[in-house]
Simulated assay, not measured.
Amino acid sequence: MPELPDLEVFSKHLQKKLKGKKLKALSKAGSWKKDFLRQPLKKVYREGKELRFLFGNGHILGLHLMLHGKLVYEEKDSKPAHTVFSLQFDDGSTLSVTDWQKKARITPDPQLSEVPDALSRQFSAAYLKKLLAGSRAKVKKLLIDQHVIRGIGNAYADEILYEARISPFSIAEKIPEEASARLARAIKKVLKDAVKKIEKDHPDIIAGEVRDFMRVHQHGKEKSPGGKKIEHAEMNGRTTYYTEEQTEYT
């Protein structure tokens, strides 16, 4: 599943490709379709793990790719295999969403969330400190909970915790204030650095997951940059990558 840095880059590239084009056809059925047809696309941006398409009349389409959804852009009318829905523009170009599981979803005028995005101003060291306090959850589980922080997924949670040198198995309320502040800094740094890296190395990417630069969450990698063995464990049905360099607070 694409995570925050991937989607942030996708949104920038889609903005360049699609801005100003008018929506000619929308394959998804619904009485709300009329709100979007013949409207110019004003902006493409990211909210949490979703992409948002803002049209000239103020209406927004929200897109969640879920686990296997992918974007395919072609400068012609097309329907790739496993297309779930598509947006066709007045110049003939088409943006399709494919998903062999058919789980990718599109939402007209999605509601604003009160949960802060991981790269928003609302997400601060003070917010994280308050979030950790009184929680008996393991810190990694908390980081990927979209009901408390939006945008962080399994892979980047591992990278963030490695950067902060905090074990993913640490109990949230046991993490001391200094380590909490370090974690807040790590969240911003890891995500922003990843956006820059993906954008530089993949100037046109709008689909897939780029993971080859990750320091610990990388299949087949045996040692961290610090030379320690990368361990693997299952947590909530997902593989967690970590090393002994990370302190466990319990």
Results as ranks from 00 to 15, higher is better:
residue 1 M to C: 07
residue 1 M to N: 13
residue 2 P to A: 12
residue 8 E to T: 12
residue 11 S to R: 09
residue 15 Q to F: 01
residue 18 L to T: 04
residue 20 G to V: 00
residue 22 K to Q: 06
residue 28 K to D: 01
residue 29 A to E: 15
residue 29 A to P: 14
residue 33 K to W: 13
residue 38 R to K: 15
residue 38 R to V: 13
residue 38 R to W: 15
residue 39 Q to N: 12
residue 39 Q to M: 14
residue 39 Q to T: 09
residue 40 P to M: 07
residue 40 P to C: 02
residue 44 V to N: 15
residue 52 R to Y: 07
residue 54 L to Q: 05
residue 60 I to Y: 13
residue 60 I to H: 12
residue 65 L to E: 05
residue 74 E to I: 07
residue 79 K to T: 13
residue 81 A to Y: 11
residue 83 T to H: 13
residue 83 T to R: 00
residue 84 V to A: 13
residue 90 D to H: 14
residue 91 D to K: 00
residue 92 G to T: 11
residue 93 S to A: 09
residue 95 L to D: 04
residue 98 T to N: 01
residue 100 W to L: 09
residue 102 K to P: 12
residue 104 A to Q: 10
residue 108 P to N: 14
residue 108 P to K: 11
residue 108 P to Q: 00
residue 113 S to R: 15
residue 117 D to Y: 07
residue 118 A to G: 07
residue 119 L to Q: 03
residue 119 L to I: 06
residue 121 R to F: 14
residue 125 A to L: 08
residue 129 K to V: 04
residue 131 L to T: 02
residue 137 A to I: 13
residue 138 K to G: 08
residue 140 K to Y: 12
residue 141 K to V: 07
residue 142 L to R: 01
residue 142 L to Q: 02
residue 149 I to M: 08
residue 150 R to A: 13
residue 151 G to F: 07
residue 157 A to I: 03
residue 158 D to P: 09
residue 159 E to H: 02
residue 162 Y to D: 11
residue 166 I to M: 11
residue 175 I to A: 02
residue 175 I to G: 01
residue 181 A to G: 15
residue 181 A to N: 11
residue 182 R to N: 13
residue 185 R to Y: 08
residue 187 I to M: 03
residue 194 A to M: 04
residue 199 E to H: 14
residue 201 D to E: 14
residue 204 D to Q: 10
residue 206 I to R: 02
residue 212 D to P: 09
residue 217 H to Y: 09
residue 220 G to Y: 08
residue 220 G to V: 03
residue 220 G to I: 06
residue 220 G to T: 06
residue 222 E to G: 06
residue 224 S to F: 12
residue 227 G to P: 06
residue 233 A to N: 05
residue 239 T to H: 02
residue 240 T to W: 12
residue 240 T to Q: 13
residue 240 T to E: 00
residue 241 Y to I: 01
residue 241 Y to H: 10
residue 242 Y to S: 10
residue 245 E to G: 13
residue 245 E to L: 04
residue 248 E to L: 00
residue 249 Y to Q: 00
residue 249 Y to S: 00
